[in-house]
Design a protein around this nucleic acid. Structure first.
Length: 553
DNA sequence: ATCCATAGCGCC
DNA sequence: AGGGCGCTATGGAT
């Protein structure tokens, strides 16, 4: 059963859809009336159809309602409107409503005085129902309907999971983090004041460089001071400074490490993003063009390794930390149908599999060669290893090469399930056409060529990173479902608390640790089957049951 | 006062 | 050397 929802001032409009997607009766409800209404529907798992999970679902979660399935029309519209798998375009009546948020707002045109519809861009119930119909038709008209349906379901489940992750939060011990900060930075300073350890290090740097007024936070200032001291570096980057032998470099590098910690994850971050023992960052499911998640606020996807000791499960609970090992090469093996590479994937450590198959001589070489193939390295060690990779894995390497050539030619590429890359920007197109003219000068030609190769590296990586994101979404979606079926122990359920591209954390009562571990593994297997059927690729997981995130791995 | 680009570095 | 991001501080521009 599908149930369409539109947010309106003070509540929601709700309608049950019949089997043709037509709205039957319409109800106007307050947010708090929604949960009883859902229960009254009698359907165990209605699929909620709404414009935007991010604006609706947090309200439902606050009201105590968890949604099992939904269709996020805005996210799905973004996929369908661009996918090369869609042959008959979307025919929504209010097409402009379904673009990105910014475009949903009126851009400049003064709203008519009596235009009372919704200047905030929130679609009405009728528009929701119509867009739902249009999307259904677009999928039905596609030769890749099964893949698109899976992608839309996974995308929508990801949107639910993102809202739930923010709602639940990652268990985070603020006192532990405070102790950690104090041990490295000294006592918590007043806002705007440098912590003592940093100030001491800054003084040492100033003394060693003979620059008493140096502000080490200023890159230009620092570069000038380094040059005055006879240190000829082009930038103040860590890797360049480590090459230099000078007494100022040690304290400077130490300063930069601490400045990073203090600025990004210091006390101010702690008091902004951690409350009641939970870290609640903002997630933006599929916020990246490739379909990976983005984050806004809190830095959800950049939780530094060094502070993961403060991520501690609640009493009586454990963290089940699982990450997919070498996900992208495995995905490439499957989507390119490369049997030899799939054979390597059946090793727990795919890179070691390359060594055992005699492709390269060391695991380090295997890794650098593989990453080079995925990212488009052409030179260096990675470039030198490429011929060996091509010989051993012709299908996989040809697949990414084809994606790169398509990008260089300005064409769109598409992931396994149907997410298509954006077209290159207008300026890119223009540079390519101009450089093809006979009167183009060599400099112009060279620049255009460089740009073409840059875009080719983007599309090369897009197909793999994007398909890996699809696998991860399916994994997450299936795991979400499995965890819900596990029930709880004394009112404490197993809950997803973190997701990071190819890694999940489930917080669970210790009694459920084994069941959650099984669920995480079976979901990974199912994700592989959902995407790639019986093709014999394996998606190995590293799973740890720990009290602290830092103890995983 | 506010916006924007850049440098640098954290994550995958 | 290469792909994708977010965040902070800085400094110039509006």
């Amino acid at each position: 059963m599908d149930v369409a929802v539109a947010a309106v001032a003070g509540g929601v409009h709700v309608s049950v859809l019949d089997e043709h997607g037509r709205a039957t009766e319409v109800h106007r409800l307050t947010w708090s009336d929604l949960p009883p209404f859902v229960i009254g529907l009698g359907a165990q798992h209605p699929r909620w159809v709404w414009a935007d999970t991010g604006t609706v679902y947090p309200r439902l979660l606050d009201a105590g309602l968890t949604v099992a399935r939904c269709q996020d029309l805005r996210q799905c519209h973004a996929i369908l409107s661009r996918s090369t798998y869609v042959t008959s375009p979307l025919t929504s009546v209010a097409d402009g409503r379904w673009g990105p948020h910014e475009q949903a707002q009126d851009d400049g045109a003064a709203p008519a005085l009596l235009d009372l519809t919704d200047t905030d861009g929130t679609p009405t119930l009728a528009e929701v129902v119509d867009e739902h119909r249009a999307q259904h038709e677009a999928v039905r008209g596609s030769a890749q309907g099964a893949r698109l349906r899976l992608l839309l379901a996974a995308e929508s489940a990801g949107a639910l999971a993102g809202a739930e992750l923010t709602h639940v939060g990652l268990p985070f011990d603020a006192a532990e983090h405070d102790r950690f900060l104090t041990s490295l930075l000294g006592p918590r300073p007043l806002p705007g004041v440098r912590p003592r350890t940093m100030e001491d290090l800054a003084d040492r740097v100033r003394a060693e460089l003979g620059a008493p007024t140096l502000n080490p936070d200023s890159a230009p200032d620092l570069l000038r001071a380094l040059h005055s001291a006879g240190i000829t570096v082009d930038t103040t980057r860590q890797w360049e400074l480590t090459q230099v032998d000078h007494p100022a470099i040690g304290p400077l590098l130490e300063y930069k490490k601490l400045a990073r910690l203090h600025g990004a994850n210091g006390w101010s971050w702690l008091s902004t993003w951690v409350a009641q023992g939970r870290f609640r960052p903002g997630y933006i499911p599929s916020g990246v063009v490739t379909g990976r998640w983005a984050a806004r606020g809190g830095g959800a996807l950049q939780l530094p390794k060094q502070i993961r000791g403060a991520v501690v499960a609640d009493p009586g609970c454990v963290l089940v930390v699982a990450d997919a090992a070498q996900l992208e090469p495995r995905v490439l093996a499957a989507m390119s149908r490369d049997e030899a590479m799939a054979r390597a994937s059946r090793r727990r450590d795919l890179y070691q599999g390359l060594v055992d198959d005699g492709v390269v001589d060391t695991r380090a070489h295997a890794k650098v060669a593989m990453l080079g193939a995925l990212y488009g390295a052409t030179s260096g060690e990675s470039g030198r290893l490429m011929p060996r990779l091509q010989r051993s894995y012709p299908a996989a390497t040809a697949y990414v090469e084809a994606a790169a050539r398509a990008g260089e030619a300005g064409e769109v590429v598409t992931t396994w399930l149907g997410r298509s890359s954006p077209a290159p920007p207008e300026s890119w197109q223009q540079a390519q056409s101009w450089s093809a003219l006979p009167e183009a000068d060599p400099d112009e030609r060279r620049r255009a060529r460089t740009q073409a190769r840059d875009w080719g590296r983007f599309t090369r990586n897009f197909v793999v990173q994007g398909t890996a994101a699809e696998w991860a979404l399916c994994w997450l979606a299936d795991l979400r479902r499995e965890l819900a079926a596990l029930g709880d122990v004394g009112g404490r359920p197993a809950r997803l608390v973190y997701f990071l591209h190819d890694e999940v954390i489930v917080e669970a009562p210790v009694e459920l640790a084994g069941a959650v571990t099984d669920a995480v593994r079976s979901s990974a297997r199912r994700a592989g089957q959902l995407l790639f059927g019986s093709f014999p690729v394996e998606f190995a997981l590293d799973v740890c049951v720990v009290a602290r995130y830092s103890d995983a791995g």
